[in-house]
Simulated assay, not measured.
Amino acid sequence: MPRWTQVLELDAQRHVVSGETDALVAAVRSGADLRIGTGFRHNEHIDTSSEREELIREVMDFRVTYLLEDRWVAGIENLRMPIALPDGFGPRESMSFFLYNQDGHQAIARPFLDGAAPTGGPGVSAPNPWPDMPKYHELDAFDTETNAPSSNFIYDFEYFQYFVGADWVEVLAHESDGSVTSGSIDRLADAFAAGAEIKVAIRGLCADLQGSSSPVDHEVFVHLGACYYYTEEKRLMAAAHPVVRTRPAMPLGYGTESWDFGWLMPRTDGFVAGWLVDPHTLKFRREDRRYAIRWFVSQ
Protein backbone atom coordinates (compact mmCIF):
# COMPACT_ATOMS: atom_id res chain seq x y z
CA MET A 1 0.00 0.00 0.00
CA PRO A 2 1.38 3.48 -0.83
CA ARG A 3 2.61 5.55 2.09
CA TRP A 4 0.25 8.40 1.11
CA THR A 5 -3.31 8.13 -0.15
CA GLN A 6 -5.44 11.02 -1.38
CA VAL A 7 -8.82 10.84 0.35
CA LEU A 8 -10.32 14.24 -0.49
CA GLU A 9 -10.00 16.98 -3.10
CA LEU A 10 -11.65 20.40 -3.21
CA ASP A 11 -11.74 22.85 -6.10
CA ALA A 12 -10.93 26.57 -5.93
CA GLN A 13 -14.42 27.27 -4.56
CA ARG A 14 -13.79 24.57 -1.92
CA HIS A 15 -16.40 22.21 -3.32
CA VAL A 16 -15.71 18.48 -3.09
CA VAL A 17 -14.62 17.09 -6.46
CA SER A 18 -13.43 13.67 -5.27
CA GLY A 19 -13.25 11.64 -2.09
CA GLU A 20 -15.18 12.50 1.04
CA THR A 21 -14.61 14.24 4.35
CA ASP A 22 -15.73 11.13 6.25
CA ALA A 23 -12.70 9.25 4.90
CA LEU A 24 -10.39 12.05 6.03
CA VAL A 25 -11.96 12.12 9.49
CA ALA A 26 -11.78 8.33 9.85
CA ALA A 27 -8.10 8.29 8.86
CA VAL A 28 -7.07 11.04 11.28
CA ARG A 29 -9.15 9.46 14.05
CA SER A 30 -7.09 6.30 13.49
CA GLY A 31 -3.82 8.21 13.84
CA ALA A 32 -3.01 8.94 10.19
CA ASP A 33 -0.53 11.67 9.29
CA LEU A 34 -1.80 14.55 7.15
CA ARG A 35 -0.36 16.33 4.13
CA ILE A 36 -2.24 18.88 2.00
CA GLY A 37 -1.42 19.82 -1.58
CA THR A 38 -2.40 23.11 -3.21
CA GLY A 39 -1.60 25.01 -6.39
CA PHE A 40 -1.22 28.74 -7.11
CA ARG A 41 0.15 31.12 -9.74
CA HIS A 42 3.46 32.89 -9.15
CA ASN A 43 2.12 36.32 -10.16
CA GLU A 44 -1.03 35.92 -8.08
CA HIS A 45 0.50 34.74 -4.82
CA ILE A 46 4.26 35.36 -4.76
CA ASP A 47 5.04 38.47 -6.84
CA THR A 48 1.93 40.28 -8.03
CA SER A 49 4.02 42.70 -10.11
CA SER A 50 5.42 39.84 -12.18
CA GLU A 51 4.12 38.63 -15.54
CA ARG A 52 5.15 35.09 -14.66
CA GLU A 53 1.96 32.98 -14.64
CA GLU A 54 3.68 29.71 -13.82
CA LEU A 55 1.72 27.26 -11.68
CA ILE A 56 3.45 26.38 -8.41
CA ARG A 57 2.42 23.15 -6.72
CA GLU A 58 2.86 22.92 -2.96
CA VAL A 59 2.52 19.99 -0.56
CA MET A 60 2.68 20.74 3.16
CA ASP A 61 3.05 18.47 6.17
CA PHE A 62 0.74 19.10 9.10
CA ARG A 63 2.49 17.41 12.01
CA VAL A 64 -0.12 18.55 14.52
CA THR A 65 -3.68 17.49 13.75
CA TYR A 66 -6.98 18.21 15.48
CA LEU A 67 -10.10 16.05 15.58
CA LEU A 68 -13.04 18.17 16.74
CA GLU A 69 -16.36 16.69 17.88
CA ASP A 70 -15.21 13.44 16.23
CA ARG A 71 -16.24 14.85 12.83
CA TRP A 72 -13.97 17.76 11.86
CA VAL A 73 -10.28 17.71 10.93
CA ALA A 74 -7.75 20.52 10.94
CA GLY A 75 -3.96 20.52 10.78
CA ILE A 76 -1.22 22.93 11.85
CA GLU A 77 2.28 23.26 10.44
CA ASN A 78 4.34 23.33 13.62
CA LEU A 79 7.86 23.49 12.12
CA ARG A 80 7.51 26.02 9.30
CA MET A 81 9.36 29.32 9.00
CA PRO A 82 8.42 32.01 6.43
CA ILE A 83 9.67 31.19 2.93
CA ALA A 84 10.14 33.92 0.30
CA LEU A 85 10.04 32.05 -3.00
CA PRO A 86 12.18 31.32 -4.87
CA ASP A 87 15.31 32.45 -3.02
CA GLY A 88 15.08 32.08 0.74
CA PHE A 89 13.33 33.22 3.87
CA GLY A 90 11.02 36.08 4.81
CA PRO A 91 12.07 39.49 6.15
CA ARG A 92 11.62 38.79 9.89
CA GLU A 93 12.61 35.80 11.97
CA SER A 94 9.40 34.06 12.94
CA MET A 95 7.43 30.85 12.86
CA SER A 96 4.63 30.33 10.33
CA PHE A 97 1.95 28.31 12.08
CA PHE A 98 -0.30 27.81 9.06
CA LEU A 99 -3.57 26.05 9.84
CA TYR A 100 -5.83 24.33 7.29
CA ASN A 101 -9.32 22.92 7.81
CA GLN A 102 -11.06 20.11 5.98
CA ASP A 103 -13.27 22.66 4.16
CA GLY A 104 -10.41 24.87 2.96
CA HIS A 105 -10.64 27.54 5.66
CA GLN A 106 -7.11 28.64 6.55
CA ALA A 107 -5.35 30.63 9.26
CA ILE A 108 -1.88 31.85 10.18
CA ALA A 109 -0.26 32.69 13.51
CA ARG A 110 3.19 34.23 13.36
CA PRO A 111 5.21 34.63 16.57
CA PHE A 112 8.14 36.90 15.75
CA LEU A 113 11.45 35.76 17.21
CA ASP A 114 13.66 38.77 16.46
CA GLY A 115 13.09 40.65 19.73
CA ALA A 116 11.70 43.81 18.10
CA ALA A 117 9.49 45.96 20.30
CA PRO A 118 5.74 45.72 19.56
CA THR A 119 4.02 48.87 18.35
CA GLY A 120 0.68 48.11 20.02
CA GLY A 121 -1.23 45.76 22.26
CA PRO A 122 -3.34 42.67 21.61
CA GLY A 123 -6.88 42.92 20.34
CA VAL A 124 -9.11 42.61 17.30
CA SER A 125 -7.54 44.24 14.23
CA ALA A 126 -8.93 45.44 10.92
CA PRO A 127 -8.63 42.76 8.21
CA ASN A 128 -6.20 43.55 5.41
CA PRO A 129 -8.10 43.84 2.08
CA TRP A 130 -5.05 42.63 0.09
CA PRO A 131 -6.00 44.61 -3.06
CA ASP A 132 -3.12 43.11 -5.06
CA MET A 133 -4.26 39.57 -4.22
CA PRO A 134 -7.91 39.18 -5.25
CA LYS A 135 -7.80 35.47 -4.36
CA TYR A 136 -6.80 36.26 -0.75
CA HIS A 137 -9.82 36.82 1.51
CA GLU A 138 -8.81 37.78 5.04
CA LEU A 139 -11.81 37.07 7.24
CA ASP A 140 -10.54 38.54 10.50
CA ALA A 141 -7.26 39.64 12.05
CA PHE A 142 -5.85 39.90 15.55
CA ASP A 143 -2.92 41.44 17.42
CA THR A 144 -1.49 43.06 14.27
CA GLU A 145 0.78 45.47 16.15
CA THR A 146 2.16 42.84 18.52
CA ASN A 147 4.87 40.22 18.08
CA ALA A 148 2.23 37.51 17.64
CA PRO A 149 -0.21 38.55 14.88
CA SER A 150 -2.73 36.06 13.55
CA SER A 151 -5.54 35.96 11.03
CA ASN A 152 -8.15 33.65 9.57
CA PHE A 153 -8.54 33.66 5.80
CA ILE A 154 -9.39 31.84 2.61
CA TYR A 155 -7.02 31.77 -0.33
CA ASP A 156 -8.61 30.48 -3.52
CA PHE A 157 -5.99 27.89 -4.41
CA GLU A 158 -6.39 26.06 -7.70
CA TYR A 159 -7.22 22.94 -5.68
CA PHE A 160 -6.90 21.41 -2.21
CA GLN A 161 -5.73 17.78 -2.02
CA TYR A 162 -5.79 15.96 1.32
CA PHE A 163 -3.39 13.02 1.72
CA VAL A 164 -3.17 10.65 4.68
CA GLY A 165 -0.41 8.32 5.77
CA ALA A 166 -2.43 5.63 7.48
CA ASP A 167 0.38 3.37 8.67
CA TRP A 168 -0.32 3.77 12.38
CA VAL A 169 -2.05 1.45 14.82
CA GLU A 170 -3.55 2.31 18.20
CA VAL A 171 -2.04 0.10 20.93
CA LEU A 172 -3.09 1.80 24.18
CA ALA A 173 -5.82 4.12 25.43
CA HIS A 174 -6.31 5.32 28.98
CA GLU A 175 -8.24 7.85 31.02
CA SER A 176 -6.67 10.87 32.69
CA ASP A 177 -5.93 8.80 35.80
CA GLY A 178 -4.10 6.20 33.74
CA SER A 179 -6.80 3.52 33.90
CA VAL A 180 -6.59 1.51 30.68
CA THR A 181 -9.66 1.47 28.42
CA SER A 182 -8.17 -0.50 25.53
CA GLY A 183 -4.88 -2.05 24.47
CA SER A 184 -1.99 -2.50 26.86
CA ILE A 185 1.27 -0.95 27.96
CA ASP A 186 3.01 -4.16 26.90
CA ARG A 187 1.99 -3.66 23.26
CA LEU A 188 3.29 -0.10 23.37
CA ALA A 189 6.53 -1.12 25.07
CA ASP A 190 7.16 -3.95 22.60
CA ALA A 191 6.67 -1.64 19.60
CA PHE A 192 8.85 1.03 21.22
CA ALA A 193 11.62 -1.52 21.85
CA ALA A 194 11.41 -2.60 18.20
CA GLY A 195 12.10 0.96 17.02
CA ALA A 196 8.57 2.07 16.13
CA GLU A 197 7.65 5.74 15.99
CA ILE A 198 5.06 6.86 18.51
CA LYS A 199 2.39 9.54 18.46
CA VAL A 200 -0.36 10.48 20.89
CA ALA A 201 -3.89 11.85 20.74
CA ILE A 202 -4.51 14.00 23.82
CA ARG A 203 -8.17 14.67 24.59
CA GLY A 204 -9.05 18.17 25.78
CA LEU A 205 -5.52 19.56 25.46
CA CYS A 206 -6.82 23.06 24.63
CA ALA A 207 -9.77 23.17 27.03
CA ASP A 208 -8.12 25.93 29.08
CA LEU A 209 -8.19 28.16 25.96
CA GLN A 210 -11.95 27.73 25.53
CA GLY A 211 -12.83 30.85 27.52
CA SER A 212 -16.55 31.57 27.79
CA SER A 213 -17.43 29.79 24.54
CA SER A 214 -19.23 26.45 24.57
CA PRO A 215 -16.89 23.48 25.09
CA VAL A 216 -15.81 21.66 21.94
CA ASP A 217 -14.71 18.06 22.36
CA HIS A 218 -11.32 17.61 20.72
CA GLU A 219 -8.21 15.49 20.44
CA VAL A 220 -4.81 16.85 19.45
CA PHE A 221 -2.41 14.46 17.71
CA VAL A 222 1.31 15.05 18.24
CA HIS A 223 4.40 13.06 17.26
CA LEU A 224 6.83 12.01 19.97
CA GLY A 225 10.61 12.19 19.77
CA ALA A 226 12.76 10.75 22.54
CA CYS A 227 10.84 8.07 24.46
CA TYR A 228 11.72 6.45 27.79
CA TYR A 229 10.36 3.23 29.29
CA TYR A 230 10.75 2.21 32.93
CA THR A 231 10.92 -1.56 32.56
CA GLU A 232 9.96 -2.53 36.12
CA GLU A 233 7.37 0.16 36.70
CA LYS A 234 6.00 -0.37 33.17
CA ARG A 235 5.52 3.32 32.48
CA LEU A 236 6.48 5.13 29.27
CA MET A 237 7.05 8.85 28.85
CA ALA A 238 8.28 10.93 25.94
CA ALA A 239 9.36 14.35 24.70
CA ALA A 240 6.81 15.47 22.13
CA HIS A 241 7.54 17.48 19.02
CA PRO A 242 6.47 21.14 19.23
CA VAL A 243 2.72 21.60 19.58
CA VAL A 244 0.56 24.58 18.63
CA ARG A 245 -2.57 24.99 20.75
CA THR A 246 -5.55 27.12 19.79
CA ARG A 247 -9.11 27.61 21.02
CA PRO A 248 -11.24 24.68 19.75
CA ALA A 249 -13.84 25.65 17.14
CA MET A 250 -15.19 24.53 13.77
CA PRO A 251 -13.64 25.71 11.57
CA LEU A 252 -10.48 25.92 13.63
CA GLY A 253 -8.59 29.21 13.59
CA TYR A 254 -6.78 31.75 15.72
CA GLY A 255 -7.90 34.69 17.84
CA THR A 256 -6.53 37.30 20.17
CA GLU A 257 -4.75 35.75 23.15
CA SER A 258 -6.34 32.36 22.44
CA TRP A 259 -3.36 30.33 21.23
CA ASP A 260 0.14 29.38 22.28
CA PHE A 261 2.84 26.85 21.47
CA GLY A 262 5.42 24.76 23.26
CA TRP A 263 6.48 21.28 24.24
CA LEU A 264 4.85 18.43 26.15
CA MET A 265 5.99 15.34 28.03
CA PRO A 266 3.11 12.84 28.15
CA ARG A 267 3.18 9.71 30.32
CA THR A 268 1.15 6.53 30.18
CA ASP A 269 -0.44 7.29 33.56
CA GLY A 270 -2.24 10.35 32.11
CA PHE A 271 0.23 12.93 33.39
CA VAL A 272 1.37 15.57 30.87
CA ALA A 273 4.06 18.11 31.69
CA GLY A 274 3.83 21.28 29.62
CA TRP A 275 6.52 23.82 28.79
CA LEU A 276 4.47 26.44 26.97
CA VAL A 277 5.37 29.76 25.39
CA ASP A 278 3.45 33.03 25.53
CA PRO A 279 3.67 34.05 21.84
CA HIS A 280 3.61 37.77 22.68
CA THR A 281 6.54 37.74 25.12
CA LEU A 282 8.24 34.42 24.27
CA LYS A 283 8.28 33.74 28.02
CA PHE A 284 8.03 30.07 29.01
CA ARG A 285 5.74 28.70 31.69
CA ARG A 286 5.46 25.22 33.16
CA GLU A 287 2.17 23.52 33.87
CA ASP A 288 1.18 19.95 34.67
CA ARG A 289 -2.20 18.45 33.85
CA ARG A 290 -3.81 15.06 33.35
CA TYR A 291 -5.52 13.92 30.16
CA ALA A 292 -7.06 10.90 28.54
CA ILE A 293 -4.57 9.79 25.88
CA ARG A 294 -4.49 7.36 22.97
CA TRP A 295 -1.09 5.99 21.92
CA PHE A 296 -0.22 4.97 18.34
CA VAL A 297 2.81 3.21 16.88
CA SER A 298 4.07 3.11 13.32
CA GLN A 299 3.68 -0.13 11.39
Rank of each mutant, 00 (worst) to 15 (best):
155 Y>Q: 15
180 V>S: 06
158 E>F: 07
177 D>M: 05
150 S>R: 09
161 Q>W: 06
174 H>N: 09
161 Q>K: 11
163 F>Y: 15
151 S>A: 14
179 S>I: 05
164 V>K: 03
149 P>F: 08
172 L>F: 01
182 S>Q: 12
147 N>L: 13
173 A>K: 08
172 L>W: 04
172 L>S: 01
182 S>M: 09
183 G>M: 00
155 Y>D: 15
175 E>V: 07
168 W>Y: 12
175 E>T: 13
185 I>C: 00
169 V>N: 06
171 V>Q: 01
184 S>F: 03
149 P>L: 08
184 S>T: 13
174 H>P: 11
151 S>E: 13
165 G>W: 02
185 I>P: 00
178 G>D: 05
180 V>F: 02
169 V>A: 13
153 F>T: 04
183 G>E: 01
163 F>V: 11
176 S>M: 10
182 S>K: 10
152 N>R: 11
165 G>P: 01
166 A>H: 07
161 Q>D: 12
175 E>S: 11
173 A>Y: 01
177 D>T: 01
176 S>G: 11
168 W>C: 10
166 A>C: 08
165 G>N: 12
182 S>T: 15
155 Y>G: 14
156 D>P: 04
164 V>T: 15
180 V>P: 08
171 V>I: 02
166 A>Q: 12
159 Y>I: 12
176 S>C: 10
185 I>G: 00
163 F>R: 07
175 E>F: 04
159 Y>K: 06
149 P>M: 10
153 F>A: 12
166 A>Y: 07
176 S>Y: 09
179 S>G: 03
175 E>L: 14
176 S>P: 01
184 S>P: 02
184 S>E: 04
185 I>F: 00
162 Y>C: 12
180 V>W: 05
155 Y>V: 15
164 V>E: 05
155 Y>N: 14
170 E>N: 10
166 A>K: 04
147 N>Y: 05
156 D>Y: 09
152 N>G: 04
163 F>P: 03
147 N>T: 14
159 Y>R: 09
182 S>A: 14
173 A>V: 00
182 S>R: 13
177 D>P: 03
172 L>A: 01
169 V>F: 04
168 W>D: 09
158 E>A: 08
150 S>Q: 12
160 F>R: 10
176 S>D: 11
183 G>R: 00
180 V>C: 04
155 Y>W: 10
168 W>P: 07
184 S>I: 02
157 F>L: 03
177 D>A: 08
166 A>D: 15
154 I>A: 07
170 E>P: 02
184 S>N: 04
169 V>G: 06
157 F>H: 12
154 I>N: 13
173 A>L: 00
154 I>W: 07
152 N>Q: 08
174 H>C: 14
175 E>Y: 02
158 E>L: 15
179 S>K: 12
153 F>D: 07
151 S>Q: 11
169 V>W: 03
149 P>N: 02
154 I>S: 08
154 I>P: 06
167 D>G: 13
147 N>R: 14
157 F>R: 02
182 S>F: 04
156 D>C: 14
174 H>W: 10
160 F>T: 08
181 T>S: 10
158 E>H: 11
165 G>D: 12
155 Y>M: 13
174 H>I: 11
159 Y>F: 15
158 E>T: 07
164 V>C: 07
166 A>W: 04
176 S>F: 11
151 S>I: 07
183 G>L: 00
153 F>W: 01
161 Q>Y: 01
169 V>K: 13
152 N>H: 09
160 F>A: 06
165 G>Y: 03
174 H>S: 10
159 Y>L: 14
